[in-house]
Computed example of a mutant assay.
Amino acid sequence: MRSPYMMKNKSIIPVEKIDRAILVIRGQKVMLDSDLAEIYGVRTSRLNEQVKRNRERFPEDFMFQLTNEEKQEVIANCDHLEKLKFSSTNPYAFTEHGTIMLANVLNTPTAIETSVLIVRAFVKLREFLSNHKEIERKIFELESKYDSQFKLVFEAIRELMKRELLDKNRPRIGFKINKEK
């Protein structure tokens, strides 16, 4: 089966598709078996069959099966995974290392080529999160460093906000134009 995301060995997988497939479950960034099967161009049953045949390659930090509660939460929060509610088995979640191992187990040209894109998506997500933490840290440093200097400014802004709220509730006085005719 040829992946709808691959054509003539040219990668046309939208990065957004891979990014959307990366979920955070149990505090780990993972991809579900159904998303990986679609991206790798195989059936989910075939993917899981290969995992079961090579179980020793998938320790707990590479792959785990979702609980019923986790499955329901994923279905509720991810529209593209709504089809999972009709499945009698809970999906498997693969970490970044698990997706790489999965490409090795599947060993199809599509799986190998796609695994590179998936790893890049995980790396991009990791970089984004680390940059976000760095910005958050710098803002905190600025706030703690300059908080006393800008305390008056913040108090003045709060006072103006209070006045604006009070002014909206106060009845207006003065001349009003009657627009009714």
Rank of each mutant, 00 (worst) to 15 (best):
N9F: 13
K10F: 07
P14H: 07
V15M: 09
I18F: 03
A21H: 00
A21W: 05
A21R: 01
A21K: 02
A21Y: 00
I25D: 08
I25W: 01
R26V: 08
V30W: 05
E38W: 02
I39D: 02
I39E: 06
R43V: 04
R43H: 10
R43T: 06
T44H: 01
T44F: 04
T44G: 05
S45A: 14
R46F: 13
K52A: 13
K52P: 00
E56W: 08
T67A: 08
N68C: 02
N68V: 06
N68G: 10
K71P: 08
E73A: 15
D79Q: 12
K83T: 02
L84E: 06
N90I: 01
F94W: 03
E96I: 04
G98Y: 05
T99M: 09
M101E: 08
L102A: 10
V105K: 00
P109C: 00
A121T: 09
F122M: 06
K124H: 05
K124T: 13
L125Y: 11
R126S: 14
R126P: 03
E127L: 07
L129D: 15
S130A: 12
E134S: 08
R137P: 00
S148M: 09
S148A: 11
L152G: 12
F154D: 03
F154S: 07
A156K: 05
I157F: 01
E159D: 13
E159H: 06
L165M: 10
D167P: 00
K168N: 12
R170D: 10
R172G: 01
F175W: 10
F175Y: 14
K176Q: 14
N178V: 11
K179H: 10
E180G: 01
